[in-house]
Design a protein around this nucleic acid. Structure first.
Lengths: 154, 154
DNA sequence: CGATAATATGACTTTTTTGTCAAGTATCCT
DNA sequence: AGGATACTTGACAAAAAAGTCATATTATCG
């Protein structure tokens, strides 16, 4: 149960786009520099986000990427889905079949209902969280840091 | 954001132990057969659970594995922790540093508080769920299957 | 005691996920 | 037009996770 690299880094790249004024293009190179990632990798991540329809690109000199919708209308859920996919129970049952063709617990599984409850909740959480919220948090954090110094929190 | 193979299969092996009367030993071979996994793999998974103190083993002919505590006192949280670890925010910050030594958002991160909220909730969910609950679910499922046939549900 | 049936362990192989590269296409600017 | 700057893409390389193997150790039973 963990957050994958693609999810984490992809989200960060998306937030870089969310930080600039609406419609302004940001180049891969800029993002790569700000995030401390290679340009090639950022490119790959943005491609994933682009395929999912969260961002779009403009080619050529002065080109770059931009969000397709304002950050207030982009959810963490969609983002994760685009970058790594929060597995559905169905998906889990299909993946973990051991050496058999189908899961041995197919007709009688006590785990399934728990995973399905868990993923539904996580979905709820992620779908309710919009990207502008993350930026707001950020703002609050720097506010606090301005006053009392060095506290990291959890 | 997904359930890893170790978590899923490890949990299933643990449930095999939870299904037999208290103190009764179950051999790796038995579990492997019932779960459709290789004996070597089951061995590895049980070792993880054993290191974490959830089960213990008895060697030699007639040996096998058994739970250290009744299923009602074993939580999903502990199990996941033993098998794959639900990452803490701290852990996330340390892993995802890109090409830098430390995360570029270290002092001002809007993502961190969201991940930390999310993992805390998931923890809550997992820690409240005990293994006997999973077995109860299973029982209910087979009850239902006994009456009306073929329904899988999500 | 010796054969057998178990667990124990660390090294190894395979597969998946991460991340990079190189070659291509579009656009802008002079 | 031609050079520079950006995105596009699929193949490749590296690293991590999953899964296997060979060998050692322990206990029971005849």
């Amino acid at each position: 149960m963990k957050i994958t690299a693609q999810e984490e880094y992809g989200l960060r790249c998306l937030l870089q786009l969310a930080r600039v004024p609406k419609g302004q293009l940001v180049s891969v190179r800029e993002i790569a520099e700000k995030e401390g990632l290679s340009a090639a990798y950022v490119e790959k991540l943005l491609r994933l986000l682009s395929r999912a329809g969260l961002v779009h690109s403009v080619r050529g000199v002065k080109g770059g990427y931009t969000l397709n919708r304002p950050a207030s209308q982009l959810t963490l859920g969609e983002t994760i889905q685009a970058l790594g996919r929060l597995e559905t129970t169905d998906h889990i049952c299909r993946s973990f079949t051991g050496n058999e063709v189908a899961c041995v617990h197919f007709t009688n599984c006590g785990i399934r209902s728990v995973w399905s409850g868990l993923t539904a909740y996580i979905q709820g959480f992620l779908n309710k969280t919009t990207l502008d919220t993350l930026l707001d948090n950020e703002y609050e954090v720097s506010e606090r840091l301005g006053k009392r110094l060095g506290v990291i929190g959890n």
